[in-house]
Amino acid sequence: MPAIEVLQLEREYKGGLRAVDGIDLEVAPGEVYGFLGPNGAGKTTTVRMLVTLLRPTGGRALVAGHDVATEPHLVRKRIGVALQEAALDLLMTGRELMELQATLHGIPSRDVAQRSAELIERVGLSRAAERRVATYSGGMRRRLDLAMALIHAPEVLFLDEPTTGLDPVSRVALWAEVRRLRDEGTTVFLTTQYLEEADQLADRVGIINAGRIVAEGTPAALKAEVGRPHLDLTFTEDADLEHARAVLERFGDHRPAAEGCHLSIAIAGGATEIAPVVRALDDEGLIVASLELVQPTLDDVFVEKTGRHLEGAEQAAPAPVPEPAA
C-alpha cells in the first residue's frame, strides 16, 4: 500500500482560483518524495490538503491508508507535520513545546518527559531546551519544529519548505536529519523550491507548476530526459577559437557559450570524454585555461517542461553534501 496516494486532487479557492488542478501522485513507504515548484505553484496547498488542514474540492487523497476527507482524524494520528515558517510559540521553552506536542499526540504522561528529551537531543538542542524559543536562531527553530513533528514516530512526515531562509550550515544539518529519517524507514514528503535540495534528498521528484504536475521521476531520470552533459571550455586569449571549434566538433555539438574565449559542447559520454578532448586540443597546440563538465539540472528539466527557469535555481549549488549522520 502506498504511503501517499493522490488521485485527481483539486483545490479551487473562492473566486475561482484553481491552486491545485487535478494532480496524481504516489509515494511508496520509506521514500523521500521531493515536491518541487516555484512560489505559488500549488505545493503548500497540496501539503495542506494532505495534512487535513484544507479540504480538497475534487479528487481523492489517501495518506497512510486513510482518506484525508473522510478520515482526517486517522490521518492526523499517523503523520508528522512541519509547515512552512516554523510555527512555534516563542514564549515557551523548547522543552515545554516538545512536552505539549507529546501530550497532544497522546503519548502517556509517564513517557512525555523522556520522549521529549530524546527528540531534543536528537536534533542537538539539549543545551537550549530550557530557553524560550524566541532566543533560538532560524536553524534551531527548524530543528525544534522537526523534532516536534517526530514526537509520535509518524509513518509519514510532511516537510513544507523546511530549509527556506536557513543558512547553508543549518540547511546541511537538516538534510542530514532527513537522510537519517529515510534510513529509519520514515516516508518523507518534502516540498522545496531549491533544486539542490530535491536533487540531494529525494528518491523521486514531482515538479509542479500552475497546479499541475509537469514531470515526475528520479532526479537522474528526469535530468537524463532533458539531455546530455556539456563541457564548458575557456581558452587563453591568444587561442585560435575557430581552430578549437573545429577540433571540438569531433566530440559533440556546439552549444551557445559566453562571449570571448569560451566554447561549449554537448558530450554524450560525460566525464570519460574529458581526457580525449583535452588531449586533442593539446595535440593541436590549443591551451585550455579552464574547463567544466556541466550536468543537466532539475532547472533544465523545469525549463524543458514549462519554458521558464525555476525561482531559486541560482541557489541550487552552494552547500557541500554531508555524510548521513551516524
Binding site: 488542514l53 510555527a87 497532544l104
Partner: peptide, 16 residues
C-alpha cells in the same frame, strides 16, 4: 496571533 503565526494550524493538525 496564534492564527496569524501558524501555531493554530499546528494544533488543528494534531490528533486532538
Amino acid at each position: 496571533l496564534e492564527i496569524e503565526g501558524g501555531f493554530f494550524d499546528r494544533l488543528v493538525a494534531s490528533p486532538i
